[in-house]
C-alpha cells in the first residue's frame, strides 16, 4: 500500500502528464488545422472567382453571330481600319450618348456609309433587310433580283471581300418580308425586313428604352389599324389589339400599350 504522500505525488504526476498531453494535442491540432483551413479557404475563393466568370476571357466575335456565313471564323481587330473603328465607337445604338442626353437617340440603321458591324444587310426598293439567324432551309428561293453587291448594304460596302464571289439575291416564296442571299462559297444568308410596324410611312422597331422618360400624348388607334411587318420565325412584340400612342417628347417614338397595361417603347430607323 502507498502512503498518503506517495498517492498524492502519483496523482499530481498523472495530472501533470495529462496536461502536457493536452498541450501537445492542441499544438498538433493548431499546426494541422492552420494549413488545412488555408487550403480550404483558397479553394473556396478560387471556386467563387471561377464561378463569377472573372477569369473567363471574351470569346472572339464569330461570323456565325453576325455576318456572312463561311468566310472567316472570327474578325481580327487589325482588319478594321481606323475609320471603321471610329464608326464602331459611334455605333447606331450608342448607350453613352443616350445617358448624356435627356432624350435618347433614334436608332441608326446600318447603311452604306455607317455600316459598323458586318451583319449582312441589303436595301431593296428603299426597304432595309438585316441578316437574321433563322434556319435557311425553312425558306425557298423565288425571284432572282441580282448580285447583292449591286444593292446598298454590307455586300456592296465590303465588296472587296466578295469580289471573287457572286452573291445572288433572291426573294423567298414564304414571305415578302424576307430575302435570301446565296453566297459564292455555298453558304446561304436569310435577311428579314427591319421593324415591326409602319405608322404614317415610318417603320418602328422595339427598343429597351424606359417608358418613364416619356410622356404619353395622343392615341392613334389599335395596332391592327396599321401595317404590321411579319417576318416568319422572328418574334414580334406587337399584337393587333395593342394600342398605339404618341409621346410628347419625340415624334419618332411610339408607345405600344398592351392589354395588361404594360407599355413598350418603339422608335423609327433613321
Amino acid at each position: 500500500m502507498k502512503s498518503y504522500d506517495e498517492t498524492i505525488n502519483t496523482v499530481f504526476d498523472r495530472i501533470g502528464e495529462y496536461k502536457t498531453a493536452q498541450k501537445r494535442k492542441k499544438k498538433i491540432i493548431t499546426r494541422t488545422l492552420l494549413p488545412v483551413c488555408s487550403v480550404v479557404l483558397i479553394t473556396v475563393i478560387g471556386i467563387c472567382v471561377w464561378q463569377s466568370g472573372i477569369l473567363k476571357s471574351e470569346p472572339p466575335v464569330t461570323l456565325e453571330d453576325s455576318t456572312v456565313i463561311g468566310e472567316k471564323d472570327y474578325i481580327e481587330p487589325d482588319e478594321l481600319d481606323n475609320s471603321q473603328e471610329e464608326q464602331i465607337s459611334s455605333s447606331s445604338y450608342n448607350s453613352t450618348s443616350q445617358t448624356d442626353d435627356t432624350q435618347p437617340d433614334i436608332m441608326q440603321i446600318p447603311g452604306e456609309n455607317d455600316m459598323v458591324d458586318i451583319i449582312g444587310s441589303v436595301k431593296v426598293d428603299g426597304i432595309q433587310y438585316l441578316q437574321c439567324s433563322t434556319d435557311a432551309t425553312l425558306f425557298t428561293a423565288d425571284k432572282y433580283l441580282g448580285d447583292a453587291k449591286d444593292f446598298e448594304g454590307s455586300y456592296k460596302q465590303f465588296s472587296n471581300d466578295f469580289n471573287s464571289m457572286a452573291n445572288e439575291l433572291y426573294t423567298v416564296k414564304e414571305s415578302s418580308n424576307v430575302m435570301m442571299i446565296k453566297l459564292g462559297n455555298g453558304g446561304t444568308v436569310i435577311l428579314g425586313r427591319v421593324g415591326e410596324i409602319i405608322v404614317d410611312g415610318k417603320t418602328y422597331f422595339s427598343t429597351q428604352w424606359v417608358k418613364n422618360e416619356f410622356t404619353v400624348d395622343k392615341y392613334l388607334g389599335k395596332a391592327e389599324d396599321f401595317e404590321l411587318i411579319e417576318v416568319p420565325y422572328r418574334e414580334s412584340f406587337i399584337v393587333p389589339e395593342d394600342e398605339i400612342w404618341t409621346v410628347q417628347e419625340n415624334s419618332n417614338i411610339l408607345f405600344i400599350k398592351k392589354d395588361n397595361g404594360d407599355i413598350l417603347v418603339y422608335s423609327i430607323w433613321e
Binding site: 498517492t7 496523482v11 498523472r14 495530472i15 495529462y18 496536461k19
Partner: peptide, 18 residues
C-alpha cells in the same frame, strides 16, 4: 483486491484533477 481498489481510488482523484 485492495491494490486494484487503491489504483481505482487514485484514478478517481486524477479524474478530479484533470
Amino acid at each position: 483486491n485492495i491494490h486494484i481498489a487503491e489504483e481505482l481510488a487514485e484514478d478517481t482523484f486524477v479524474l478530479l484533477g484533470t
